[in-house]
Nucleic acid binder design. Structure first.
Lengths: 188, 188
DNA sequence: GACTAAGCGGAGACAGTCCCCGTTTATCGC
DNA sequence: GCGATAAACGGGGACTGTCTCCGCTTAGTC
């Protein structure tokens, strides 16, 4: 199914350049960075950018896929180091921190866990959902996480925690606080 | 302090018209509605719009202030009808639902509870924080809410719940679900 | 070296924001 | 009523960003 038509050399070169420029620009100006500016930085015309990446979302995903996969891999590291319940919380902490510190990542992960009926299956979505699934299942088996929550709900809640934390200070200092309110509940 | 310089009749008229047009436009196109279009709907020039409302935020606030105050008043109604803990949860539910259903309200309330050092004290912020403060205090006194949470934290968490719920279905169907996960915690 | 299609790139149409400043008009003292 | 005058109007225009179209260039192939 996956047609493997080798890209022409110039196309591949421009693709790489665009990715590099995009990562810089998103880091610098957030997810709203000017696309024409990214093309300019990469030394290509804007047509070239739009041909390779039809939407901002596509570019964002391509630029950050490595980082997202690192985050997913981190889930398995943590699972090896800590008991399941703690591994899950620690991972959610790192995930939320990433969403706040890496500009643009929050939007990307948000759309990866959005229930669009137009559900484009994104590589980022697959990675992150897989990682969450493994941690959630282990924690539930261990008995430290209620059995009726779905992995994707946990991801959405992490997004919510990142949002709440962002409102608080724009850095990530309050993530642990909100995460612990979530895990322990609001009752005394 | 509050200089009460009565507006000129034409100024007042245009102000009202803009508010009405803005409410329509925000409802129709979300918080990103075109400001020039709002001016056009109101039958005034864009200069007039920008004079009355220097920023999109200012217009958004003016257009929705009634609704926010209704929400704040609702807090006190609920406090009269239900025990404090339940009143709080029910209010948070209605608040979050409003953020999702009324396009633009989420952004407005978000900036009202953001800790900007450039903290503009907004009327919306005052209303909503006051209402939250009363409910939180009552629930804490009753002993159904942990004593170490601040009203503003609760508001930020509600924002997070609305965000998570929005990712789930774009309507408000999952607010109660996430709210109950938050109040009860994620442990079994 | 010549052919050809894949790929390039930037001009330009369009949409939005926001300011500037010449013109209009509500208000007030007479 | 009737100017005088400062407040308010409004739309033209500069600017920024998105995205497409199509004539030109060039990599890959024989």
């Amino acid at each position: 199914m996956t047609e493997v038509k080798p890209m022409r050399a110039d196309a591949r070169r421009n693709y790489e350049r665009l990715l590099k420029a995009a990562a810089e620009a998103f880091a610098e100006h957030g997810e709203g960075a000017s696309l024409d500016d990214i093309a300019k930085r990469a030394g290509v015309g804007s047509g070239t950018l739009y041909r390779h990446f039809p939407t901002r979302q596509a570019l964002l995903e391509a630029a950050y896929i490595d980082r997202v996969e690192a985050l997913a891999a981190r889930a398995d590291d943590l699972a090896g180091e800590l008991p399941p319940g703690e591994a899950l919380v620690e991972w959610l902490n790192e995930l939320s921190a990433g969403m706040i510190q890496v500009r643009g990542l929050k939007a990307l992960l948000g759309s990866a866990v959005t229930d669009g009926s137009n559900a484009v299956v994104t590589a980022c979505g697959v990675s992150v959902k897989g990682a969450a699934g493994r941690l959630v299942e282990a924690a539930q088996r261990e008995g430290t996480l209620r059995g009726d929550v779905e992995p994707i709900e946990i991801l959405r809640l992490a997004h919510g925690v990142a949002t709440a934390s962002e409102l608080t200070d724009g850095e990530g200092k309050f993530i642990r606080r909100y995460l612990s309110l979530l895990t322990e509940g609001l009752r005394p």
